[in-house]
Amino acid sequence: MRNAFADELTKLGNDDPRVVMLSGDIGNRLFDKFKDKHPSRFFNCGVAEANMMGVAAGMAMNGLRPVAYTITPFVTTRCLEQIRTDVCYHEAPVTIVAVGAGLAYSGLGPTHHACEDISFLRSIPNMVVICPGDAFEVRGALRAAMQQDRPVYIRMGKKGEPVVHKGPITDFKIGKAITIEEGSDVCLLSTGNMLPEAIEAAHKLKEKGISAEVVSFHTVKPLDEDKLKQAFSRFKLVATIEEHSLIGGFGAAVSEWLVDSETHAKKFLRFGTPDAFFKKSGEQEYAREVLGLTGHQIADKIIHALS
């Protein structure tokens, strides 16, 4: 995802002189092309995320379209006050791009995990929260974000994730979920880098004769309410899938919507990370397995819930 981000950003920078890139001393060589073409619009802000976010807000208040980028916890929780007050309160059109969301950087330990950021950021007024499901969604989200006149948060995985879409998504719209596979029994609403697991779960379910629809629910705020209405009326089971805490994340947002809209859920399951730091050493695949978040484990739980 991050290579797609850097590439798309360079293109956007070519077309729009307002685009400015701020990085928190990460992404070695990732932005070389952008730097080459727009040396005056790239800033390595160092290991100083609070300042970076304030600078981005100041730029945005003055007609620029800054993108602030670093590892997820450092571009969210580390500078949350700057995001809340400088960016969101001022409705400053800063695009915040996070790399390594959820357990993407599992091996680096809990300082680098990010399973709370959706919760924090979606509770801030004026903020849009997008969790792209693959590299093409990253491109679509970034393009859409830069056309907004408001703060946007884009939560990416790392690099080398499976690419789900066949090509560029020309009609990517913030707040409009994308159906990846059609189905008739259960509906899997996936957000962010869990999309490949959701697809795997659907395939496992199919083997058991259960037809699953897979939706990339890339925008967590604002929610695609039409899609939710459809999902809860058409399917006998709806599941949300995310690499984020069950507290305050995508599944929580859908739960809130269910209550507030007085929608009836026949069966509703939420897949996400527990209320605990993941302290074991190990890569993302291992962490998902331990936490029951792999496609086959998700499928098993759904089968169990249906029986």
């Binding site: 091996g107 680096l108 330990g109 809990p110 300082t111 680098h112 730091f277 302290k279 074991k280 050493s281 190990g282 890569e283 291992y286």
Partner: peptide, 17 residues
Amino acid sequence: TYCQDGGRLAEHPPANL
């Protein structure tokens, strides 16, 4: 066990472990 699945030695020093 440094960086191995399930161990105590992840890539940064852990808390209370």
